[in-house]
């Protein structure tokens, strides 16, 4: 349990850092260049870490199923959706919705035991927890206190900008 929390905190902190670094790249490059670079770096890092921890075992893919080869495309879908969402709504509103649906879908996935994960039965308590967290996200993002510099010429395609 504690270990799980530790990894969740680690993941969230690194997502925050990555968003900031990616937005720096995106200031000088287009969204798809940024995305290609980010995924390429992720691939190299995963490959190196995998070789380090597993050696040649990394390439033994016994229980491989064909859909595994396509799941990486989900990440590309994420980028496409965020770019369009932010373009149409602006970063603050778009990201508020993104974070909310992230959590809503998590509750859905747990309740159904999606992909054969251990089912976490849906309960009123679970729903209450999620509703309060979503409320917190909305207060945080839409509380309107961040001194949001509205420059005369905002950066085009602010995909990574403020995505956390």
């Amino acid at each position: 349990m504690v270990l799980g929390l530790f990894f969740a905190v680690l993941a969230g902190s690194l997502v925050s850092l990555q968003n900031i670094f990616n937005s720096k790249v995106n200031e000088h490059a287009g969204s798809w260049q940024t995305t290609t670079l980010v995924l390429g770096m992720g691939f190299l890092a995963s490959l190196i870490a995998g070789l380090f921890f597993e050696g040649s075992q990394l390439f033994r893919l016994q229980n491989m199923q064909s859909w595994f080869w396509f799941s990486g495309m989900i990440g590309v879908g994420v980028v496409a959706c965020l770019v369009q969402g932010i373009r149409l709504l602006g970063p603050t509103y778009a990201i508020s919705i993104v974070l909310t649906s992230q959590l809503g879908f998590a509750l859905f996935a747990d309740s159904l035991g999606l992909f054969g994960l251990d089912k976490v039965p849906f309960s009123f308590q679970q729903l209450m927890g999620v509703v309060i967290i979503v409320g917190g996200i909305l207060v945080f993002k839409l509380g309107g206190s961040t001194v949001f510099k509205r420059s005369a010429n905002p950066l085009p395609e602010q995909k990574w900008e403020r995505s956390s």
Binding site: L5, A8, Q18, A45, D110, L117, I133
Partner: peptide, 29 residues
């Protein structure tokens, strides 16, 4: 920055396995 994804994916998967999706994503956010 993209290289962080290796640790992010590992941590995310481990957290989901240990705590379930809702709790893992909540803490992550």
């Amino acid at each position: 920055g993209g290289a962080l994804a290796a640790v992010i994916i590992y941590s995310n998967v481990t957290a989901i396995r240990l705590t379930g999706v809702t709790l893992a994503i909540s803490i992550l956010l």
